[in-house]
Design a binder for these strands. Structure first.
Lengths: 179, 179
DNA sequence: TATTTTAGGTTCCAAAAAGGAACTTGTCAA
DNA sequence: TTGACAAGTTCCTTTTTGGAACCTAAAATA
């Protein structure tokens, strides 16, 4: 009766969720991005129990998202630092905080702000197309999931580029209409 | 000894994680994007237990991410459809699957593909700046978290635009180096 | 019309994970 | 040498999952 693992599913989303798909892991990483590095700092800032923290840090190190680096004279104390693989999660955080800012807070009260070094402006992170540079959102992108996932969903070939991301206008809903 | 809630934390990331911060919720939504709408379809495709599914669908409806729409003659059977709020999570999924494709699979074997309707190309989703349109990644963006979060982290004002996202070059790490 | 299947759950139980708190082991600093 | 700090580990209790069976109403089929 082991808890279900998503790590063997043939889908980038499922496998990613197998790694970061719990709230403590993501909050630990959020604090890594905010320069927290040490066990007790994570524990005090986040308020999670020590053995959950131990477990999550170990997994993140095993996955290569954090690295455990000795510091101090003795070499028996460690800091947890983001690897390149870990830093590459930045767009996931940006997308999440942008969604949270838009839907969970008043616009004027957004708790997370980003500043783009290249242009110096406070900005919103926008998904764009690697080919044409245009904005990509749920109204103008289609996605396909790879054959293995398709088969578990029993989709026909002609449906494979038809995820809801590219829904028809009739199925759009108003903002703030959740009835 | 209730499980910790992140919904009251003054941070868009924490609150978002309070809502979608578990792996089943995100996989349910992934399947919503793939046009799954009905209870039993979710259950068979994902293989989760029925009462976890009941619980997650209810929460997603309560949060306004899904809407429960009657169908059929009697009006006593329901479909779960993404609201606008739910569809707005598309960038989070794109960022996650893009990270998974890059770090968890061989390049040639990426299980999730995106096609941009505007230009017709298979594309990668790229985070860009709403002001200048340039690429935004961990090397050229800084982030700040809002005063309330800063206070829990005891950061000084001058550190507030200094999240690791904009780390110094000396602290970069090689891809595939997780030692 | 009677029976079966489908949809959307609920109930029950055992196992796993999370929370709370105290305890350990080694370092450092006064 | 005493006390505080860092990084865990251990013990115990409560919540959540997983697995499977059961329930009720609506639709389909024979």
């Amino acid at each position: 009766m082991k808890r279900t693992s998503h790590n063997d599913k043939p889908c980038g989303i499922a496998q990613t969720l197998g790694i970061i798909g719990d709230s403590w892991t993501m909050l630990i990483l959020r604090n890594c991005f905010m320069r927290t590095r040490r066990f007790d700092d994570f524990q005090h800032q986040l308020g999670l129990t020590r053995h959950v923290l131990t477990d999550r840090l170990k997994k993140l190190v095993d996955y290569g998202i954090l690295k455990k680096v000795p510091y101090g004279e003795s070499g028996k104390r460690y800091e947890y630092l983001l690897t390149h693989k870990g830093k590459s999660l930045a767009p996931v955080f940006m997308a999440m905080s942008n969604w949270g800012n838009e839907w969970l807070f008043e616009d004027s009260n957004a708790p997370t702000l980003y500043k783009h070094q290249a242009c110096g402006q406070v900005m919103q992170p926008v998904m764009s197309c690697s080919c044409c540079g245009g904005v990509v959102d749920s109204s103008n992108v289609k996605m396909t999931m790879g054959h293995a996932v398709q088969e578990t969903m029993k989709q026909e070939p002609e449906e494979r580029w038809d995820a809801v991301l590219g829904f028809s206008p009739a199925q759009n809903f108003e903002k703030n209409n959740n009835s």
